[in-house]
Design a protein around this nucleic acid. Structure first.
Lengths: 180, 180
DNA sequence: TCGTTATATATCATACCGATGCATCACTTG
DNA sequence: CAAGTGATGCATCGGTATGATATATAACGA
């Protein structure tokens, strides 16, 4: 798996940013769908990238908040990023608590099952709606558009599957609860 | 996120197993699509579950290999599992090196882009084919069938998207490489 | 018989996650 | 106008997970 240092280099290859702004990129931006990193890994990564000369810290101008640290990628950093990008990508990994829980659906109260599935469907529908608006307004590189499209495709597939098959699971749980 | 201790309890709730067998469950079984755990986290988890009295180690019968340790879940373990299952599930997380790489598609050689996308499509097509056979033969609980169906739905969505949109990305990379 | 694969346990350095703490600024709401 | 709330911003720390590695036996075909 690609490490957080590389993720940071990726963000910085698009323009200067602070640690906080990098974090936001993984929370909201097009990269958020398939990557993730929190402060606890971003700040140490930036420190190491600085030491390795792959990024530099810009001298902050006196006005405004003096505590914001802006970072810029160096040629050495761009090279390191490129080397990471051409390595064969490891397999995709989907981790889902919900799916683990649902695989034990027969152990759970049917009403509870129904609730957590409904909640998740509306979560996904909400994300889809947001993405549809954003995708048509925000400016994106071809790569970003491609990745955002993939996110949309997956979210739609998940939401549809949940809607179309939820009754099978709840029915089975109902049967189980009547036996017990 | 659900921790590895709980994942182990989940597997053991279906029947006695060794650490190695638990691992296999996350590599091949229906749980493999949305959960993961390696030896480095399974063995320490089993140790802690033993200490906490949530599992017990079965006395291994003299014949056969004496080094295999079989574990069994206790009532206390079942209770702990249930408590974890009814907690509100955290958000799904999809991590994909490939998508991170493709979001910088314009920086990469078009031929290389084309290759890694092709490779990934055949990976997914292969997984889909395996799942279609297995799903119709293997015996599964309703929950497992549901989760396996979700895996199938997502893999299909990803493979289709890659096939239908790859040319957009490669075309953009070609343009870029001609400009440069 | 020799190499490879599967079974099986275990450890270790590194990396990551989530929570927490702290401070400032902007905005809104009574 | 005061007070509260939420966003911006940096940073650390304990607990947990990862991925590689080591070790050993069994099975199985070349």
């Amino acid at each position: 798996m690609i490490d957080v240092k590389t993720l940071c280099l990726g963000v910085l290859s698009r323009g200067d940013a602070s640690g906080y702004e990098i974090r936001k990129e993984f929370e909201e931006g097009p990269l958020s769908h398939f990557s993730d990193a929190g402060f606890g890994s971003i700040y140490p990564s930036l420190k190491r990238l600085l030491d390795d000369g792959q990024i530099t810290m810009l001298p902050h101008n006196g006005d405004g908040r003096p505590d914001k640290k802006l970072y810029r990628i160096t040629p050495s950093g761009r090279h390191a990023l490129y080397q990471s990008l051409i390595k064969p990508p490891s397999a995709d990994k989907l981790r889902s608590d919900l799916m683990f829980i649902l695989s034990f659906g027969h152990l759970l109260p049917p009403r509870h099952l129904d609730r957590i599935i409904s909640d998740r469907i509306s979560d996904y529908r909400h994300m889809i709606a947001t993405l549809e608006v954003e995708g048509s307004t925000a400016h994106r590189t071809p790569g970003e558009r491609f990745v955002e499209g993939m996110g949309l495709a997956i979210y739609r597939a998940v939401a549809s599957y949940l809607e179309e098959h939820r009754h099978e699971l709840v029915a089975a749980a109902l049967m189980e609860s009547q036996v017990a």
